[in-house]
C-alpha cells in the first residue's frame, strides 16, 4: 500500500443516537452488543458505549467472593511498531485508558471476558482482510 494512506484515521461509530441503544442497558450491567461492535459500560448511571476499535483487551481476577473485570483501551503510545494502526482522531485528547468493575457473579464476568475477546478477534480479522484487499 501507499504510505500516505496508512496514516489516515478510519472513522467508526457505535450508535447514531440514543434510540439505537439496546434495552439491555437498563440493568446497569456491562453489555456486549455484537451487532454494533460495541461494549456498553454502566458508568455512574450512564450507558456508555465503547466501540471495539477502542478496546485493547480485557483482564479478570478473583479476590475472595468478588470478581474484577478490567477493560483496557487503546491509547496513544501503546502501539509500539504499529504506527499505522493509530485509531485516533486526536492523539492529544484525554483518553479513557481502563475501567474496572466488581461483581459477585464470577461466571458472568468469565462470559463477558470471552465475548469481548471474541469480538476483538473478529474486528482484528476484518481489519487484516481490509488491508489485504487494499494492497
Amino acid at each position: 500500500g501507499k504510505k500516505n494512506e496508512d496514516k489516515t484515521w478510519k472513522k467508526f461509530q457505535s450508535y447514531k443516537g440514543e434510540l439505537a441503544l439496546p434495552p439491555d442497558v437498563e440493568r446497569l450491567r456491562v453489555f456486549v452488543d455484537r451487532k454494533a461492535q460495541t461494549v456498553i459500560l454502566p458508568i455512574n448511571g450512564f450507558a456508555v458505549p465503547f466501540h471495539i476499535n477502542t478496546i485493547k483487551n480485557v483482564s479478570k481476577n478473583d479476590e475472595g467472593d468478588l470478581t474484577y473485570l478490567r477493560i483496557n483501551f487503546q491509547t496513544p503510545g501503546q502501539l509500539a511498531g504499529k504506527k499505522e494502526d493509530t485509531p485516533f482522531e486526536n492523539p492529544d485528547a484525554t483518553f479513557v485508558r481502563s475501567v474496572s468493575f466488581r461483581s459477585p457473579d464470577g461466571a458472568r464476568f468469565d462470559n463477558l471476558q470471552k465475548q469481548i475477546t471474541d469480538l476483538k478477534k473478529e474486528a482484528n480479522k476484518r481489519e487484516q482482510q481490509r488491508k489485504q484487499l487494499a494492497d
Binding site: 440493568r27 478490567r70 496513544p76 492529544d92 479513557v96 485508558r97 474496572s100 468493575f101
Partner: peptide, 15 residues
C-alpha cells in the same frame, strides 16, 4: 448496588 459496580477508571492525559 444494582448491576455491575465500577471501582476504578484510568485516564491517559497527554497534557
Amino acid at each position: 448496588p444494582q448491576g455491575d459496580e465500577m471501582v476504578e477508571i484510568r485516564f491517559h492525559v497527554p497534557g
